[in-house]
Design a protein around this nucleic acid. Structure first.
Length: 382
DNA sequence: AACACGGGGAA
DNA sequence: TTCCCAGTGTT
């Protein structure tokens, strides 16, 4: 175990850091549009949305979400499907499910009153150490350390810590430093300043050290190691996949399936989709290739859904990526002419399947690619 | 400790 | 293309 004490600054230096951070922040201003609010509900929702997600992507979602679920009671009363639909396209959908579940718990366990204690906050699903600290400091102005992407980078550089910031030692060091920085008053402002400095000045590549108010206290700046700190873990390799997705039309309705696994897009609706093992991700879709694809897709449909289809036609191709996969999605469509023996909703190994009109599909949460596919079918631009 | 979880923007 | 993003929960 490394001794983390040697990295931590003296009290006097901490005082200087706080003062300069605050002065810089007041002059620089904040880049988040809604940060003036003290409403714990709004801060909570925005913090969950911002997890691993850029501000730019979040802004329109946040505004729509708040309009639809203005207070915690409205969110608690909503169905999971409604919440997922509001989350559609944002990614990391368990955030949406946890958000709703936490709203229910706030209403039940805390009688609708937002908890202030770290332990109470962290007992809610989706709220971890960072988000609990953010809510405590931003909404209630209570001292609470925070470590996230921006502050992690800033702390590592200030401390000149070239170890892995995400292992046990690194984590202990960074949270200790964050704790050390906390003032008794105006903790929210200090934490805002730390993140703002991290995102605007202490950037991942070529940080703007000449504009940094605390560069004179930065060990990385002192020995010009800004670009090798923080230490970066090697990234997992991305796997190439080819999948086929089929819109099966019967009259006015299309066959869709709810994804059941607790993994990717859990609980969301999608056109039937499966991996195509015998087509390389780089294969060009020639006439022969299409013929072969159609045969494979037909076999898969019979096997997984027990439906026979004809006239398979390639509509378009969508390339997209998820956490560990880059996917080439071949989108097909066809008319389904046989009688469906089951009711309009049935179950198969892949989850519940149902016939829905395009209008009904608009009400269901779907992955982004499914929605693009639907847009193509209904004649809209993708 | 290592993984899984999405999608978009920027260099 | 690659990297990164106001992290958390599960295995």
């Amino acid at each position: 175990m490394e001794d983390i004490q040697q990295f931590l600054p003296e009290d006097q230096q901490v005082t200087v850091l706080r003062r300069r951070l605050k002065a810089w922040f007041r002059k620089h201003g904040r880049s988040l549009p809604w940060r003036e609010t003290r409403d714990p509900y709004q801060i909570w929702v925005s913090e969950i949305m911002l997890q691993q997600t850029t501000v730019k992507a979040v802004v329109p979602y946040f505004e729509r979400f708040l309009a639809r679920f203005p207070q915690v009671e409205a969110l608690a009363a909503a169905s999971e499907e409604e919440v997922l639909q509001a989350w559609e396209g944002l990614g990391y959908y368990s955030r949406g499910r946890n958000l709703r579940q936490a709203a229910v718990e706030i209403c039940e366990r805390f009688h609708g009153e937002f908890p202030k204690g770290l332990d109470d906050l962290q007992s809610l699903p989706g709220i971890g150490r960072y988000t609990a600290g953010a809510i405590r400091s931003f909404a209630f102005d209570l001292p609470a350390p925070i470590v996230e992407a921006n502050t992690l980078r800033l702390y590592c550089r200030l401390l000149g810590y070239d170890g892995d910031p995400r292992d046990r030692t690194g984590e202990r060091l960074l949270w200790s430093f964050a704790e050390r920085l906390q003032p008794q008053r105006n903790a929210g402002e200090l934490n805002q300043a730390l993140m703002e400095l991290g995102s605007q000045v202490c950037t991942p590549a070529s940080p703007l050290c000449d504009q940094c108010p605390v560069s004179s206290h930065c060990r990385a700046f002192a020995d010009s190691s800004q670009n090798s700190i923080p230490w970066k873990r090697e990234r997992p390799k991305v796997t190439q996949l080819v999948e086929a997705s089929v819109a099966i039309r019967s009259g006015e309705t299309y066959l869709v399936r709810q994804r059941q696994s607790d993994k990717r897009w859990a609980g969301m609706w999608d056109f039937p989709r499966f991996g195509i093992a015998d087509i390389s991700s780089r294969t060009r879709m020639t006439r022969q290739g299409l013929k072969k694809l159609s045969a494979t897709v037909r076999d898969e449909l019979v096997r997984t859904l027990q439906v026979e289809v004809e006239n398979l036609e390639l509509v378009t191709e969508i390339r997209h990526s998820v956490t560990r996969y880059r996917i080439r999605l071949l989108c097909l469509r066809c008319d389904f002419t046989h009688e469906m023996e089951t009711a309009d909703s049935t179950r198969s190994s892949g989850g519940e399947i149902a016939w829905k009109t395009l209008r009904e599909l608009e009400e269901l949460p779907m992955p982004r690619t499914g929605r693009q596919f639907e847009n193509i079918l209904s004649g809209k631009q993708s």
